[in-house]
Design a binder for these strands. Structure first.
Lengths: 156, 156
DNA sequence: TTAATATCCGAGTAATTTAATAGGAATTAA
DNA sequence: TTAATTCCTATTAAATTACTCGGATATTAA
């Protein structure tokens, strides 16, 4: 039940992008450096965000990325689902529309458990907007006077 | 953010055990057969449940497993945490007491997200008792007249 | 006492997924 | 044209998952 680095790095990258957006596009190299994430890897993550319509890429010199929508219209759920796929704890045909139908869905009891978990996760992440995190981030950074993440490995 | 087969199989095994408990202990071979799970693998899972004090093993002939507590005192959260470890979406020093302190916890914004997710998951699973699932299972099985899981692969 | 039935325990392993790295093509501003 | 940048795909090492296997230990019943 752990998120992968895709979700963790990707969310940090989007927050970083949102925080550092003025009129110009933000280059991925800047986000990668500030967040201490390999740029090559970050490219793959931002590709998922682009595919889901959360960010928009601008090619060429002076290019970069911008949010495709206002930060208060992007939920953490949108971001995490783009990066991790659906946030359900199981691949269940009835919950998500999983690829293969489930042979024992008629006598399956655990599906009630999975649905409760799934709903609670999605409710939680859909209730937090990117703008909330941007506001929090600006507040915290103003207090600490730091914009760059520490070198040492982060687990979250 | 998916549970592994440990959590999925293990929860099904505990429900099966609880449903089929009369006065005698239930042999693992019976659970394995009914649930279509390899007995060798199930052994490893039940070992975790034993270690967490959820089931109790009785060795020797006519032995097997019994619940270590009444089913209405065992939550789905207890079971899943025994099988999967903590249900937090990240290894965060402040959330769980993770092994390594986090270098950037003072400027970390995502921790608020992880805490909301973690709390919502734990609240959900701690609110469902094994006895609830046993009751549901007996109801469903009475309707369907089936006690054994279908051969074909289950994804949940 | 012996045989059968179980749990208990640890080692090994194939398959899958994760977390990257790497290289180059396409696009655009200066 | 050149430098900066996104875009795209292939490859790979490490970790994790999902098992299998073999045998030791305990208990009951004949």
């Amino acid at each position: 039940m752990k998120l992968t680095t895709r979700g963790r790095y990707g969310l940090r990258a989007v927050i970083d992008l949102a925080v550092h957006t003025d009129d110009e596009a933000v280059a991925l190299s800047q986000i990668a450096e500030r967040q201490g994430i390999s740029m090559n890897y970050l490219e793959q993550l931002i590709a998922k965000l682009k595919k889901s319509g959360i960010v928009h890429g601008i090619r060429g010199a002076q290019g970069g990325y911008v949010l495709a929508m206002p930060a208060d219209e992007i939920s953490v759920g949108d971001i995490l689902r783009a990066l991790e796929g659906d946030l359900s704890p199981v691949d269940c045909y009835e919950l998500n529309n999983s690829d293969t139908p489930c042979s024992s869905s008629d006598i399956c009891v655990t599906k009630y458990v999975w649905k409760r978990i799934s709903d609670s996760i999605n409710d939680a992440v859909d209730g937090i907007m990117l703008s909330d995190l941007v506001a929090e981030s600006k507040k915290v950074q103003a207090e600490a006077g730091i914009t760059q993440v520490n070198q040492s490995k982060q687990t979250c």
